[in-house]
Structures are given as structure tokens and as C-alpha cells.
Amino acid sequence: MKAVVIEKFGGPEGLAVVDLPAPVPGRGQVLVDTEAIGVSGADVLIRSGALAGYGFAEGHIPGGEVAGTVIAAGDGVDPAWVGRRVWAFTGTGGGYVEHALALAEDVVPLPAGLSGVDAVTLGSSGVVAHFGLAHARFGPGESVLVRGAAGSIGITAVQLAARGGAGAVAVTTSSAERGARLRELGATDVLDRSGAGGAGFDVIFDVVGGAALPSFFDRLNPNGRLVAVGMVGGQPPADFGAKMLADFRKSLSFATFSAGTVPAADLRAVRTAQFAAAARGELQTVVHELLPLERAGVAHRKMDSGEVFGRIVLTR
């Protein structure tokens, strides 16, 4: 089968298309013939080598989510899965392939009317948005700022906050054009990347992190909560907590959130509900571009440019 591997950490040129033996599902696993593969910010970080200290090595196959048809099931898996169209979580890698392995507990059937492309645009981002807002204790009537709203996680968070009765949904983004598109999805206020001119938020849902993260504590109301669900802009300064301590009387909160802390059954339930909502047209997916698997390097170059709005999807 064809697969894309990281031959050398660094730029997109370090990705290579290779031929590998088709895998065989082990106990508790299924094998998915992929039709769509999501390209994520995590894939880009791994490819760059930024996460080499976390166990990733050259030779790694990127990709954490795929959609397609189950073509084989391992021991202990209901054979009825074979032949079903599914979304599947492949873990921290293994998705940029023609045939992907996944644990049966990490597989969700696709409803009629939902494409594989839409599934991988929503599958991982949707649960991060849902549980990230819950982690921030977001409630109706509260004001929310989504920092880094142009990616698939931010786009979904904007919609969920608006549907959840937010008093206001502000976003940070890089252009008026993106701001207009985010307004169509539920944003009420558009700020530049610095967040200048924005304040009075009960919740900040932060995909970016980076050096500017501490400045966003100034945008929070008393008892406000900032939840970091990603660090695509890099790590914040080591002393970022000093800003919170300086505003001690505001009783501010900071937390991180990873979907890896959510029980598999809860993730599956939310994904199933979100897939159904998307199939009914109640939850929008935004696809920036479709590219064939062999052009994964091009996809990563576009991700590196910072010009992607939504999700790039690799197809077969």
C-alpha cells in the first residue's frame, strides 16, 4: 500500500511517499480502506520535529483520523463491522495510508448523507470544541472569545458556543475575509490576532498558545476562564502565570484540555451526535482544499503558510 512517512524532521520536503506491506488487524482492531484523511496542526508539529522529545521519531507515519470502509476485523471484533463506512481515530499517527489500523472502540459509523471528507473535518475537532467548552464551564449568556478561530477546532467552537446561547462570540483571525466567514458561522465580533479592542470575556477558548497568551488574561472578566486546547503558536513564556497572579483579585482560571482525558464512550457518543447534526445540516464543516494522498507535502506547505481556513483533507 502507499503511505506517507516523515523521512526527515523539518520542512514538508521531509515527507516521502513509500510502499509498505498492508497491515493486518490485531486483536481489537479493524482495518479501514481510507477514502479521506484529515491533516491537522498536530501532524505539522510532529513533522517539524517539535515533538521529537515526546517519543516521535523519523519514519513516523502522520495522521490521526481517517474515514473509509472497514475491510477486515481482528480477533474479538464483531465481524459486522466489515463493509461499514466509518470514521476512525488512528491515535498519534498511522493515518496517511491507503489502509489504516484503528481500535474498534475508536471507530464510529457514518450516517447516511455524511461524506468521509466531512467526517474527518469534524471528527477530532468537534470533540475538542465540545469538551473544551465544557472544561471551561461555559454556560448560556456568557461571552466567549475563540482565539485562533480559522482552523477546524475554532470553527466548530464558534458554532457550538453560538448554539449554546452565548451572549457574544468573538474571534481572533488574520483577515476581514475570514472574519466575514466566521460571522456566517455564528461569530458576533471579529478581532485581529492580538485581540486588540476586545475585552469582557467570561471564557477564552485558545487554540494558539504562544508568546502572546499572557496578554489575553487582560481580556477576561472577573471569574473568567482561559482554556488552552492547542499550542499551534508554540509554548507560552515560562512565567505566563505571573500575569494571573498580578490580577489576583479577579479570580481568574487557566486550564489545559486534551481529548485524551475523555473516556472513549463519551467521545463516541458526542461524535455520533455531531455526525448526525452535520448530516442534517445543523453543524457546518469547512474544507479548505482536497488533495490526493501523494501530495501530503503540498498540504503541509499550505499549513505552514498559515493561510488555511478550515481543514485540508487528503483523498484517494
Rank of each mutant, 00 (worst) to 15 (best):
A157D: 06
T261V: 12
R311M: 07
V24A: 14
D247M: 14
P21G: 09
R268K: 15
R225F: 06
A72R: 14
S40V: 01
G139F: 00
P222Y: 02
G93N: 09
R225V: 00
D43N: 10
E184C: 06
A279M: 10
V232M: 13
L160K: 02
G53M: 08
L213T: 08
A276T: 13
E184R: 11
L133D: 05
G141I: 04
S258N: 13
F9W: 10
D218Y: 07
A129M: 07
A50Y: 11
G179P: 01
H288T: 08
R219M: 09
A57R: 14
R311Y: 06
D19C: 12
F138V: 02
G165K: 13
S124M: 14
S143L: 02
R183W: 00
V18Y: 11
F217D: 03
P23G: 05
M303E: 02
H135D: 12
F205V: 02
F254E: 03
T92A: 14
G53Y: 10
G64D: 10
F240A: 05
L122S: 05
G123Q: 06
A36E: 10
V144K: 03
L145T: 00
G14W: 09
V146A: 00
S215K: 14
F309I: 12
V108Y: 01
I204F: 10
D33T: 05
Q274G: 10
R47D: 02
V117R: 08
G59I: 12
G116E: 06
R147G: 00
G63Q: 09
G306F: 10
R163G: 10
L15P: 13
L290I: 08
T315P: 04
I153K: 06
F217S: 08
A212N: 11
L133G: 00
A238H: 12
V4H: 03
S194Y: 02
G123P: 12
I61M: 11
V108K: 08
D43H: 06
R295A: 11
H130Q: 07
P12C: 10
V298D: 15
Y54C: 11
R249Y: 14
E65D: 13
D75T: 13
V18H: 09
H99G: 03
A112Q: 14
L220W: 01
G167Y: 02
P236W: 07
V66Y: 01
A42I: 04
G49I: 10
E65S: 12
E184H: 04
A279K: 06
A264D: 10
V190G: 02
A277Y: 04
P23L: 03
A255P: 01
A279G: 05
A259F: 12
L314S: 04
F257H: 06
V203I: 15
D78V: 15
G83N: 10
E142F: 04
G306C: 11
F89S: 14
Q284Y: 03
S40D: 15
L15N: 03
R316V: 12
R178D: 07
V18A: 12
R301H: 09
R225W: 13
P140N: 01
G154N: 04
A22H: 02
A176C: 00
